[in-house]
């Protein structure tokens, strides 16, 4: 219960911090908008298939950019201060939750921008929103944990991509399949299994980061 209380507190701190220095979050939102704009200019008549792939590519790179700063942004002294106060699990949990919320809003914004500039081929809205939710969760869990790993090393921006991209591929492939279903590109009777697989991957990775993070922050 202590962890839960601490998590909520840290989550509020993250949001408050973001709210006070708005340049980081507005930077990310601007990044998404300009990427969508480039997609719009680069590919005039976009097919549904390409829409699906590009959408998730934009989300993927925006996520990496948004999450890189999770552990890098705060200097090590301040982190040391947190660690004397709270459980390490609360730290990683609050960061993951915060990043999930951030990525959700990022994805919804990209979706809005895509619909505005490129077109909106989504047929099954519920399925698409579910994909966005599970995707944000999965991206957030993986990249938050990997950024915690990368933050320990020098040269961590490159490291985040090297370590994170291969690990994200199972999630990304499942997501593209889910959203292809939502876009009416394919009818698949096994889509429920895919949702279960995605939820299972998210939960397993979350459990692993929960177990492993305490070993990571000790310095």
């Amino acid at each position: 219960m202590e962890i839960l209380k601490e998590t909520v507190f840290l989550l509020r701190k993250e949001i408050l911090l973001e709210w006070r220095q708005k340049y980081a979050i507005s930077g990310i939102f601007l990044y998404v908008l300009s990427t969508v704009f480039i997609v719009y200019f680069a590919i005039p008549n976009i097919q549904t298939q390409a829409w699906n792939s590009l959408f998730w590519m934009v989300i993927l790179f925006a996520s990496v950019n948004a999450i890189t700063k999770s552990f890098v942004q705060e200097n090590s002294n301040r982190q040391l201060y947190y660690y004397t106060l709270v459980n390490p699990q609360s730290v990683i949990l609050s960061k993951m939750l915060y990043n999930t919320i951030l990525l959700m809003s990022l994805s919804l914004l990209s979706y809005a921008a895509f619909s505005l500039f490129v077109g909106n081929p989504v047929r099954d809205m519920g399925m698409f929103l579910l994909a966005i939710f599970l995707g944000s969760l999965g991206f957030s869990i993986t990249f938050t944990f990997i950024s915690a790993v990368a933050a320990k090393a020098s040269n961590n921006a490159t490291l985040l991509a090297i370590l994170g991209f291969p690990l994200i591929i199972p999630i990304l492939l499942t997501l593209i399949k889910l959203s292809a279903d939502a876009l009416g590109l394919m009818r698949d009777s096994s889509i429920d299994t895919d949702i279960q697989i995605l939820v299972a991957i998210d939960l397993i990775l979350m459990g692993m980061s929960f177990i492993l993070f305490p070993y990571l922050w000790r310095d």
Binding site: T142, F145, V149, K152, A153, L163, L167, I169, P170, I197, A200, I201, I204, L205, M208, S209, L212, Y215, L216, R218
Partner: peptide
Amino acid sequence: RVSAVYNIFAFVAMVPL
């Protein structure tokens, strides 16, 4: 320490892959 943490995480992530 860090590579041990990554190694465990990577193996678990590789299983669904």
